[in-house]
Nucleic acid binder design. Structure first.
Length: 376
RNA sequence: GGGGGCGCGCCGGAGCUGGAGAGCCGGGCCAGACUGUAAAUCUGGUGACUACGUCUGAAUAGGUUCGAUUCCUAUCGCCCCCA
């Protein structure tokens, strides 16, 4: 596994690169659809590959460990085989669930005790267990087990938290380096920068994380409710410090505008539930702006949803049809909207790559961001 | 033709048999939220107005009463039973 930078912008920190894994190459900057439970919700694998042209998808350690359980995944020969997806996979470690299930867990030095959100049963994740589970799941890129702090987070807590995350990080690498992949291909462990919205903590964390010899470096603990400006500020501070020749993965981000702004700051990889969750809730990203397809104004609009995106559903089907499917709560509406939003995100990344190649990224980004945020 | 029952919000249901909430529960409708997925979810609004308040309202028109959605009379509409 390796990463090559093909071109660097001169007017921003944006870069064009290729990340090679044993399941194929990933062109960066890239958006990775989230498939928490072994599925990108509402999307079939064929569509993911052929329509959306996803190059890599996510899975989640905590959710897959609870269901279907790692014994079954091992028996199936790993997650790739279980879900029949032969391209790269990245798994989150369960660190995000430390944040999102905060009312059902307890953190200690050793790890985190969870009450299952499904049946209330007790479970325990530690850095070692999270690595072991991710060895069994068999993702190409696996994430360190960290604490994702909430926003706002007081300085004292955030400082203690990065110290814990850094100790956990070493334990993750120790376990990772003393074990092997189970299925004959390579895995890589990605460390995660934390530090909430504090400049000195972010710098410190970025320095500690950079000391690890890794292929991918992640930035976590952002897009948890802080203003976008603070997110950009923290990202800029961290990308200054992280190794320049390795991909940076900004976890959980974000809106189309967030992606373009972060690419300009030197971020290469993104994931977010926004395109899929918002699609299921009727919010659609188009080349002209954001549409809430459930709104009455679309009821009789027979124009295609978005002619400018190369998407089999939104080129063909009208806004009125999408509206109708949502009004009648038909499942096809959720599928079509999810397909569209993901196609939109992946095409946005492809455009960004082309503009970086052309050397016109900066001006294109600035003119495009306003359009993306318009509310139709 | 005779007897009985029922009519309040956009719709359905609950509740009220003298002290009326512009008001309960669903649904619909109108909006909003969603950022390493406890999310096909959640939140708010849905009589009028001169709008932190005021007014009108229980099929329609009268009546009794300090006070009526509730009791009485008539009319209209719907449902059930008998002929």
């Amino acid at each position: 596994m390796n990463f090559t930078i093909e071109k660097k912008c001169t007017d921003t920190s944006a870069r064009l690169g290729i990340l090679n894994t044993d399941h194929g190459s990933i062109e960066t900057p890239i958006f990775m659809p989230v498939g928490t439970q072994g599925t990108v919700k509402c999307i079939y694998q064929d569509q993911l590959k052929n329509d959306i042209k996803a190059q890599i998808i996510l899975g989640n350690t905590y959710h897959l460990y609870l269901r279907p359980g790692i014994d079954l995944i091992e028996k199936a020969g790993g997650l790739h085989k279980f879900i029949a997806w032969d391209k790269p996979i990245l798994t989150d470690s369960g660190g995000y669930q430390v944040y999102s299930l905060s009312n059902m867990r307890k953190i200690t030095e050793e790890g985190v005790s969870f009450k299952s959100h499904i049946d209330g049963s007790s479970h325990f994740l530690s850095p070692e267990i999270a690595v072991d589970i991710q060895r069994v799941i068999g993702a190409d890129i696996i994430m360190a087990f960290d604490e994702c702090t909430p926003y706002p987070c007081d300085y004292h807590y955030a400082k203690k938290s990065i110290q814990l995350t850094h100790r956990w990080l070493q334990r993750c690498f120790d376990r990772f380096n003393n074990t092997n992949g189970k299925y004959g291909y390579n895995q890589t462990l990605a460390p995660i920068v934390q530090g909430s919205t504090y400049i000195d903590l972010r710098k410190k964390s970025a320095q500690v994380i950079s000391e690890q010899d890794a292929l991918v470096y992640a930035i976590g603990g952002l897009s948890v409710g802080e203003p976008a400006e603070e997110m950009y500020e923290m990202t800029a501070i961290v990308t200054e410090i992280l190794p320049q020749d390795k991909p940076r993965y900004l976890m959980g981000v974000g809106t189309p505008a967030n992606l373009l702004e972060s690419i300009a700051l030197g971020v290469d990889m993104f994931d977010c539930v926004m395109p899929t969750r918002n699609a299921r809730h009727g919010l659609i990203f188009t080349s002209e702006g954001i549409i809430n397809i459930k709104n009455a104004k679309w009821k009789t609009d027979l124009e295609p949803l978005d002619k400018n995106i190369n998407c089999t559903t939104s080129n063909v089907h009208s806004r009125a049809y999408f509206h109708h499917l949502f009004r009648t709560k038909e499942m096809l509406g959720l599928q079509m909207a999810s397909l569209h939003n993901l196609t939109f995100y992946l095409e946005l990344m492809q455009m960004a790559r082309e503009k970086i190649k052309d050397g016109t990224f900066f001006q294109w980004k600035n003119s495009f961001v306003t359009k993306l945020q318009a509310r139709l």
